[in-house]
Design a binder for these strands. Structure first.
Lengths: 134, 134
DNA sequence: GTCTTGTAAATCGCGCACGATTAAATCGCA
DNA sequence: TGCGATTTAATCGTGCGCGATTTACAAGAC
C-alpha cells in the first residue's frame, strides 16, 4: 500500500498547490516548467523534459498552453532545426516574483520541519531511482 | 522540491505496475478498485470513492470500463435508487488469483525492507492527512 | 553527393483527475 | 401531505501522462 500512499498524496499535493497557483493561472505541471525556466531560460524541449521527467508528447501541448498565455515563446533553433528552444517572455519572467512565496507556503502546509521535508524528499527520490532501474 | 519527488515517484510507481498489470489488462486505478472489491464485494460508488479518494466524476467512467471488460456489474439499489451497487462477476473474482503475486513483486522492486516500506508509507500517509487539512 | 542511421519534436488516441453542473431520489419537517 | 433541502451518480469540459507512430532534420559511411 506504499503505492496508494504515493498516488493519493501526490494528488493531495497538487490540490494544495491549486489555491496558490490559481492567482497565477497555472496548473502544477505548468508551474514546474516555469520554475525550470526561471532557473535557466532558453532551453530546448528535450532539456526541459529531462528535468521534469516528461517527454514531448506531454510537453508540446503543455508548452503550447503556456505560449498561449503569453508566458513563453517556442522557436525552432536555426542551428539545428530539429530542436525547439523555449524562451520566457517579459510576462513569463515577471511571474517569478508573484510565485516567490509559494515554496514557503507549501512547506508550511506540510506541517514538517525543513529538515524532515528534505529527508523525506531524499527517501522518495531514492525510491524513484530504484523503481526506474527495473 | 518534496512536491516534485512525490509527483515523479508516483508516476514511476505506476510505470512499475504497468508490466505487472498488463497481463491482467488493468491500469493502476482499475487495479485499485478491483482490490477494494476483492476485499469487500457489493459496494456503492460512494463507498468505493471514500476508499480510493476519488469521486463519481472519475469513478463512473472507470467503473464503466471495468464493466465493459466483464469484471463487474453496476446496478441501481432497489432500496435507494440514488445509489449504484458494484458487484464482481465470476471473471472479476477469478482475476484475484492472477493478481496475488503483484504486491510482493512491487515490494521487491522498491528495494526496501518490508519495515522501511511500512514506515515510508505511514510518513507519506501522515503528510497526506496534513495537506488535506488546509 | 547519396544513403543509412540516429535524434528531436510533434501528433494521435486513450485513460485518468477534477471543477462545475445536472438529474433523480430521499429526507426532514411544518 | 407536500415541498424545500440534502444526498447520490452521472455528465461535460479541460488538462495532464503516455504508448505508438510520424515528420523533419542532422550526422556519418561510403
Amino acid at each position: 500500500m506504499l503505492c496508494f500512499a504515493l498516488y493519493s498524496t501526490a494528488h493531495a499535493m497538487q490540490q494544495s498547490y491549486k489555491s496558490l497557483l490559481a492567482p497565477l493561472g497555472l496548473t502544477y505541471p505548468q508551474y514546474l516548467l516555469m520554475s525550470a525556466l526561471w532557473t535557466e531560460d532558453d532551453q530546448t524541449v528535450g532539456a526541459l523534459g529531462r528535468q521534469v521527467l516528461l517527454e514531448s508528447n506531454t510537453l508540446t501541448p503543455l508548452l503550447k498552453r503556456l505560449e498561449a498565455k503569453g508566458l513563453l515563446h517556442r522557436t525552432r533553433d536555426s542551428r539545428d532545426e530539429r530542436q525547439v528552444r523555449i524562451r520566457l517572455t517579459q510576462a513569463g519572467r515577471a511571474l517569478q516574483q508573484q510565485a516567490a512565496h509559494i515554496p514557503g507556503c507549501i512547506v508550511e502546509k506540510t506541517g514538517l520541519t525543513l529538515e524532515d521535508v528534505t529527508r523525506l524528499r531524499d527517501e522518495i527520490t531514492a525510491l524513484r531511482a530504484e523503481l526506474a532501474k527495473g
